[in-house]
Design a protein around this nucleic acid. Structure first.
Lengths: 150, 150
DNA sequence: GTATGTGCAAAGGTTTTGCCCCAAC
DNA sequence: GTTGGGGCAAAACCTTTGCACATAC
C-alpha cells in the first residue's frame, strides 16, 4: 500500500500498512499512535509513555521507543530535535516547519511553499536528492519578549 | 569587546574576549578552539576530545564539554543537532545551513540570502524575534544515489 | 595569593538491548 | 501453533556535576 507522504492514513489503513510488513496491531501501538495524533503537539517519549499508561497500564518505556521506531519507518511519525536534549515526536502531517520560543518553549508550526521550492533549487545545485527538510527558527515569542523587557 | 556575529575573531581577540569576562586562557581552551576552527567540520565532543588529547594528553572529556559551553556563550562555536543523537560543534562562521547525506553522512554547507529574508518575514508574521535559524536538508548526495541504484 | 579551571570519578538522563513470556494472527 | 511483540531489568550512551588539586592571572 502506498500512502502519499503528507497525507495521514486512516486507522484502517494503518492496520493494513502494518500487516503488509508482517507487523501486528497491538493495543500498545494503537494507543501510542492515537496519542501522537490527538495531542498534535511535540511529545517526548516520556510524555507519550505517561499518557499511554492511562490506557495500557503495564506499558513499558522500551515499547514506546520500539513503537516510535516502527512508526518512523512507516512515515507515520517524525522525530524532531528541537531545543533541549530529548527527541520529540509528532504525527507526520505534511511538510511543515517550526518556530521555537527559547523562553517558554512554545512551538509554532508553519508551512512555507517558498521554502520548499528554494530547498529543491538548493539541493539541485549541490546534486542532492532531498528526502526531507527541516527549518527551525529560534527566538522569543511576543509574550516572552515583552516580559523580558520589563 | 564586540565581535560582529559571523565574523571570526582572531586569536588575540579571543584572549581579550575571555579576559573581559574574567575567564582564563588555558592550553586546553586554545587547543579545543583551534581544532574546531581548523577541522572546519562538524565534530562531536568525543572527536574533539580525541584530537585535543594529542596536544594536551591529560585532557578530560568534561573539560571539553565545559569549554564548548563557554565557546557557545562567546558565540565562537555553535551546537548542531544533525542526524544522529549527538551534538556536533562547529566554528561560528556566519549564518549558513546544511545539506546532510543520509548514506555517507557528508555535510555540505551552503548560504542562502533568500532563506534569511524569508525567515525574517515568517518570524514577523508570527510575532517572533529571531535569534537563530537552522535549515537542514536531508537526502542522498550524488555519489551515494549512484551507488544505491547499482 | 586567589579565583578560575581541570581531572577524575560518579551521577544523571535518555535511549537501546537481551531475555523470556505473552498474545495477535 | 508460530512468530512477532511486550515487559522488565540491565546496559549503553552522552552529558553534567562535585570535589580536591593545579595553574593563569
Amino acid at each position: 500500500m502506498i500512502v502519499t507522504r503528507g497525507e495521514r492514513p486512516r486507522p484502517g489503513q494503518v492496520a493494513a500498512l502494518l500487516q503488509e510488513r508482517g507487523n501486528r496491531v497491538t493495543p500498545q501501538r494503537r494507543a501510542i499512535l492515537r496519542i501522537i495524533e490527538e495531542q498534535g503537539g511535540h511529545l517526548s517519549a516520556d510524555e507519550i509513555y505517561y499518557l499511554a499508561r492511562k490506557e495500557v497500564p503495564r506499558l513499558s518505556l522500551s515499547t514506546v521507543y520500539r513503537t516510535l521506531e516502527l512508526l518512523k519507518d512507516l512515515d507515520l511519525v517524525s522525530e524532531l530535535h528541537l531545543a533541549g536534549s530529548r527527541y520529540r515526536y509528532e504525527a507526520q502531517s505534511g511538510e511543515h516547519q517550526h518556530l521555537v520560543c527559547l523562553a517558554c518553549g512554545r512551538v509554532i508550526e508553519f508551512q512555507c511553499a517558498h521554502c520548499a521550492e528554494m530547498h529543491q533549487r538548493l539541493a539541485d545545485q549541490h546534486g542532492l536528492k532531498i528526502t526531507g527538510s527541516r527549518v527551525e527558527l529560534f527566538g522569543y515569542c511576543e509574550e516572552c519578549s515583552t516580559t523580558r523587557n520589563d
